[in-house]
Every structure is written in structure tokens, then in C-alpha cells.
Write a protein that binds this DNA or RNA. Structure first.
Length: 135
DNA sequence: AGCCTGACTTTGT
DNA sequence: GACAAAGCCAGGC
């Protein structure tokens, strides 16, 4: 039945990277951070690059989030990048899903209404990691 | 080490 | 309100 309980995993990430974790291959790169947050996005909800960036502590580095998403498709498990939109709720990255309509298809499949490449009720289904994960 | 790019955001005109 | 430019940071070459 249910999956995990009150998740709220909230990854450590990015804070104490200064600590050399032996010969760790990566020690949580900025990208991994983004992937994890993206995977935490509830079904039927969406968020923005800036929100994730801010949650990671990089406020203005929303670009990096999107850039990370570019490689997200190659990550395992796959990252639901279709739940990440720009601050306007527009499917800016839909063109990167291989099929331009795939992103919208996925969103609608989750109950998210999309019109003209823009998510309707974006402010209502908006999922803010800083609010949802940071109690 | 340095330059360029990028699925964004904010600010100014 | 629409358009243009700058800022931001990490990865790739």
C-alpha cells in the first residue's frame, strides 16, 4: 500500500562539501542534489527551477538546475524532469524530452492541466521544496 | 587554467 | 506590458 512514510528525507548535500570524504567519487554534486529534489516532487505537483535552486542554496543559479536536468534524463532512476518548469509554469524544457509533446503528456497524465505549453493553476499545484521539505 | 554554453531569474528601459 | 541585457554557477572542451 503506502510507500514511505513522512518522507522529508531532505538530503544533506551541498553544505559541508569541504570535508573530503576519502576517495568518494563525487560526494553529492550539485546535479545529484537537483535530481533528488526532483524525485521528491509529488505526483500531480510541479515546481520551478528557481525554487529548487533556492532550496539548494543557490537562489540565482536556476540555470544550473535546468542544466542539471539536461543530464537528468541519463540518470537512474530517471528524474521526473517534466515536473520542473520555469517560474511562469511554462514547459520550457519540453523540447528536451525527445518528443515535444512528451512532457505535456506526462503532466496531464498526472492530472496537471497544460495549455499552450503552460501549466494551469500553476500557483496551486506549485510544490515548494523549501516549504514542503523544510518544516 | 580559461572560455563558452545553458531546460532560468531579475531588473531596467 | 514587452523587449533587452546582466547575473548566476557548474560542466564540457
Amino acid at each position: 500500500m503506502n510507500k514511505k512514510k513522512a518522507v522529508r528525507k531532505k538530503k544533506p548535500a551541498k553544505k559541508a562539501v569541504s570535508k573530503p570524504i576519502a576517495k568518494r567519487k563525487d560526494s553529492y554534486s550539485f546535479f545529484e542534489n537537483v535530481y533528488e529534489v526532483a524525485r521528491l516532487i509529488p505526483r500531480g505537483r510541479v515546481t520551478s527551477y528557481g525554487a529548487i535552486a533556492k532550496y539548494l542554496g543557490s537562489g540565482q543559479s536556476a540555470r544550473m538546475v535546468g542544466y542539471a536536468m539536461n543530464a537528468a534524463a541519463t540518470q537512474i532512476p530517471p528524474v521526473p524532469a517534466h515536473r520542473v518548469l520555469n517560474r511562469n509554469g511554462m514547459l520550457t524544457g519540453k523540447h528536451h524530452f525527445g518528443l515535444p509533446d512528451l512532457m505535456q503528456k506526462l503532466l496531464e497524465k498526472e492530472g496537471v492541466k497544460v495549455e499552450k505549453d503552460t501549466v494551469k493553476n500553476f500557483d496551486k499545484i506549485f510544490w515548494n521544496p523549501s516549504t514542503e521539505l523544510s518544516i
